[in-house]
């Protein structure tokens, strides 16, 4: 049993061994889950890699043919680009809104009670089920954005927005909805760093005679790495969201520069196509290749975001 103690890097009395062993078993099980995830996805994606190679990530084609596997062709380009497009719009929407929310609660609202009230509202926003956002998005937000944003922009500057917005369910709508949904998450990340700005810096800036807005600009410069990290983590969230996006993105295989056209995201593609994928030889495999890509995007973006965040925090504590 010396092995157990060495592994846990601690001393155990004989009566504690069973307890330690059972905790270790659970910890190992949880750790094994992630590995199992990657392995099963790769196993399922393998056939399409054999058939299409990495082209499955490059082509934009979705040809499902029953009883003739050789004629089936799948390429996820439209969904991958759509995922990135939606997540980028989401970030553009949510970063300024989140910054304003953080500044309002930390700098502008007088009194604890008002601050408490606003933070309760933000908690409520975070607690709303995503499907409720989706229902509201498709029933209220999509027509609203089409009539009051997309149509006016199309009529005023057709050279910039050449596509007529024939429907409200578009890449743009999905991006805006994801931006709204990620505000509580992004704001919480930024707020945590903002309240860590050292008192010495606050006092120094105000002692120089800065106005509030000038001081805030200095503080925001101070937490800039965290804002970037929050943008990355928000991007990851928006890229992985499924049902709300599936309802408002339009679900169309189309690559277009204009955000006012229906599109697809990887998650929405899986949600809408997986149900009938069993009818075809390769479709399920292609969807798992998409899932694998989503996993890779998510892990890469999140690892970068968390690393950035941790580096900033350790630098703060270092000082």
């Amino acid at each position: 049993m010396g092995l157990l103690e060495a592994l846990l890097n601690t001393r155990l009395s004989p009566r504690e061994r069973l307890y330690a062993l059972s905790l270790l078993a659970v910890a190992t099980l949880v750790a094994a889950l992630l590995a199992a995830f990657a392995v099963t996805f790769f196993v399922k994606a393998e056939p399409i890699f054999r058939k299409e190679g990495l082209g499955v990530y490059i082509w934009n084609v979705w040809r499902a043919v029953e009883n003739n596997p050789e004629a089936e062709r799948y390429g996820l380009a439209a969904a991958i680009l759509g995922t990135v497009y939606v997540a980028v719009i989401a970030i553009i929407v949510s970063i300024p809104l989140s910054l304003a929310l953080v500044l309002l609660t930390t700098e502008y609202l007088p009194g604890r009670h008002l601050q408490e009230a606003v933070s309760a509202l933000v908690d409520a926003m975070a607690a709303l089920p995503t499907i409720v956002y989706g229902l509201w998005g498709v029933a209220v937000l999509a027509p609203l954005l089409r009539n009051f944003v997309m149509l006016p922009l199309y009529h005023c500057c057709p050279w910039l927005f050449p596509e007529y917005p024939s429907t409200g369910t578009t890449i743009f709508t999905a991006g805006v909805l994801m931006g709204i949904m990620s505000v509580p998450y992004v704001a919480a990340l930024i707020r945590e760093a903002y309240i860590m700005v050292p008192r010495s810096i606050r006092e120094a800036v105000y002692a120089l005679g800065a106005t509030k807005s000038e001081a805030i600009r200095v503080f925001l410069g101070y937490i800039k790495p965290v804002v970037i990290a929050a943008a990355l983590l928000g991007f990851g969230r928006a890229a992985g969201e499924t049902v709300a996006v599936a309802l408002v993105v339009g679900d169309t295989f189309r690559i277009s520069l204009s955000p006012f056209t229906p599109g697809y995201t990887i998650a929405a593609l899986i949600a809408t196509q997986y149900g009938n994928a069993f009818l075809y030889r390769y479709m399920e495999s292609a969807l798992f290749a998409g899932g694998l890509m989503l996993l890779i995007i998510g892990v890469a973006v999140n690892t970068a975001g968390i690393a950035l965040m941790n580096r900033w925090i350790s630098r703060m504590h270092g000082r």
Partner: peptide, 13 residues
């Protein structure tokens, strides 16, 4: 990482 995995993928798993 488990927190950040898109939930649709958890369903597929």
């Amino acid at each position: 990482s488990l927190v950040e995995i898109p939930t649709i993928l958890t369903g597929l798993f």
